[in-house]
């Protein structure tokens, strides 16, 4: 005669040995390893994009008839960024995953925030360096024209000195865009890191 499922269930769990709880150990080790791997995976896409951008800037500029140097400045900027990101990835990969997951998580969090701050600083300095030569070039090259005429909007009859406002505006814009992309791209990982660090700190206390 077949046993009922209720009977199998009860009989199966009569012996307490059946329900041995696994030991809670290395609770955060695997989590921290996964987070580190995820962060590296995400960061690894950036150098590839930067290399493509560097190539596009050089040949794209040349293709639309601009001077070779104007594209080169942007490309050099991308290549510098490329090396900074590569260095950051290497730092994260070198962070010791084996010994202490709390230290590992702390170093990941620190590296992530340092990466954000370094890139923000780079944008504050690099963007004006990138834009200024283009603005100066345009200013002298189209000296006779008004601001509106340069952009094909004749009604904007401002002096072409106004072109220089593009430098601070462009810089602020690039920083804002970067910070927003960081917030939505890396923000969840940064929050998770912070949560795990807080968990471990709570345990320590």
């Amino acid at each position: 005669m077949e046993k009922s499922i209720e009977h199998i269930w009860k009989e199966g769990f009569v012996n307490n040995d059946t329900l041995v709880a696994p030991k809670i150990q290395n609770l955060y080790n695997q989590k921290s390893k996964h987070l580190g791997d995820k962060l590296i995976r995400m960061l690894n896409t950036e150098p590839k994009v930067l290399l493509i951008m560097a190539i596009v800037f050089i040949f794209g500029n040349y293709a639309i008839g601009n001077d070779f140097w104007s594209g080169s400045i942007a490309s050099i900027w991308c290549i510098i960024w490329y090396f900074i990101i590569k260095k950051q990835i290497q730092n994260i990969e070198n962070a010791n995953k084996e010994t202490n997951c709390y230290e590992f998580l702390k170093s990941l969090h620190k590296l992530l925030l340092r990466s954000r701050n370094e890139i923000t600083k780079m944008l504050w300095i690099g963007t004006p360096i990138l834009i200024l030569p283009m603005v100066i070039y345009t200013y002298y090259n189209q000296y006779e024209k008004t601001f509106g005429e340069i952009f094909g909007v004749e009604s904007l009859s401002y002096p072409n000195e106004l072109l220089f406002i593009i430098v601070p505006l462009g810089t602020i814009f690039s920083v804002v865009i970067y910070r927003l992309s960081f917030k939505y791209g890396y923000g969840p990982i940064a929050n998770k890191l912070k949560q795990l660090i807080t968990d471990i700190e709570t345990l320590k206390n």
């Binding site: 046993k3 499922i5 199998i8 269930w9 009989e11 199966g12 769990f13 012996n15 040995d17 059946t18």
Partner: peptide, 10 residues
């Protein structure tokens, strides 16, 4: 996972 074969089947 369990000693009881019928529980494993269930």
């Amino acid at each position: 996972f369990f000693k009881e074969e019928s529980l494993n089947e269930l």
